[in-house]
């Protein structure tokens, strides 16, 4: 039964556009990498800054061990009396050695290496602590006491985070623009290839929108097919990269897991690619047909 006549020739015989799905696959691959890379980095940065934003590190570097212990006791007392301090933890020798090992190598932290006293302080998120006053009081105990609130490092980190995210956004925009250009080019080539068919359909009374629908359906399929291929390749690449970087960065930096919920957004990319192809093809065809009689 003749339910619907597909008046455009089979896609496989379309020399002008049959490779388009693979170009779309590359575009979706790049988009997915840019988007996922941006999401992973965003999550990493957020976790790192979150971990440091309510933490203080106090180092006491006084060379004389007895004096250092006395100063440590004074500092601990001062912290206990300061409102807004939730938790005070003095790192033991093993913990300090574990921190140094990735930088110095295993077994290189010898007993004659002078280690400072390190106190990890967790500050309340609900109550502000006057760090300047705290710093002043600690300076009164000893000039060898250093309070680090990580703000300088965090500030640079946030700038880096912004730069990386804007770069990813830029890459994504370029890929979208390139995709639109490729689809326009492909659609025009497809129209030129099917000029005679379009002309016949016009003579038989086909409306422009009917002809445009045939093209937009075809380009939507290209977008979906290319999008699916690109997404699978991007997923394989991302998983491989995450595993590789986790193995290489073990101990230095804690890498976050793949953001599953945000990652689900990637599944929408082939649909967006299909939609982009469809809309671009429709506009291109309608404009092209409008120039005909």
């Amino acid at each position: 039964m003749i339910a619907r006549v597909n008046f455009l020739p089979d896609e496989r015989s379309h020399e002008a556009t049959r490779l388009l799905p693979y170009v779309m696959a590359v575009m979706v691959y790049l988009s997915a990498l840019a988007l996922m890379g941006s999401m992973v980095l965003h999550r990493s940065f957020s976790e790192w800054t979150e971990a440091l934003s309510n933490r203080l590190t106090i180092q006491i570097t006084t060379p004389d061990p007895a004096l250092r212990e006395a100063e440590t006791a004074d500092v601990t007392r001062l912290l206990q009396q300061t409102p807004g301090i939730d938790f005070i933890h003095r790192l033991n020798k093993v913990e300090i050695e574990n921190l140094l090992e990735p930088w110095l190598g295993e077994g290189n932290v010898t007993s004659d290496l002078p280690l400072p006293v390190m106190i990890d302080v967790t500050v309340s998120r609900t109550m502000a602590v006057n760090l300047d006053a705290l710093r002043g009081m600690m300076a009164g105990i000893s000039e060898n006491i250093h309070l680090d609130d990580h703000q300088q490092w965090l500030g640079r980190f946030v700038k880096l985070m912004d730069a990386v995210e804007y770069t990813a956004l830029g890459v994504l925009s370029l890929v979208v623009m390139a995709t639109v250009c490729i689809v326009i080019f492909g659609t025009k080539a497809g129209m030129a290839e099917n000029r005679e068919t379009i002309s016949i359909m016009h003579h038989l009374g086909a409306e422009d929108s009917m002809i445009a629908r045939a093209f937009q359906r075809r380009f939507m399929r290209y977008g979906l097919k290319g999008g699916a291929i690109g997404l699978v390749l991007a997923f394989i690449t991302l998983v491989s990269l995450m595993s590789l970087s986790r193995a290489m960065m073990a101990g230095l930096v804690r890498l976050p897991d793949m953001p599953v919920a945000e990652g689900a957004v990637l599944l929408v990319i082939p649909l967006l690619a299909a939609l982009l192809c469809m809309v671009t093809a429709r506009i291109t065809v309608m404009r092209g047909l409008n120039r005909m009689v």
Binding site: R4, V5, P9, T197, A206, M210
Partner: peptide, 16 residues
């Protein structure tokens, strides 16, 4: 239209 059968070619005006 070379890729359509005779039936499909003739059916085009009715389909449209």
């Amino acid at each position: 239209l070379d890729h359509l059968t005779a039936v499909e070619n003739v059916a085009l005006p009715l389909w449209l």
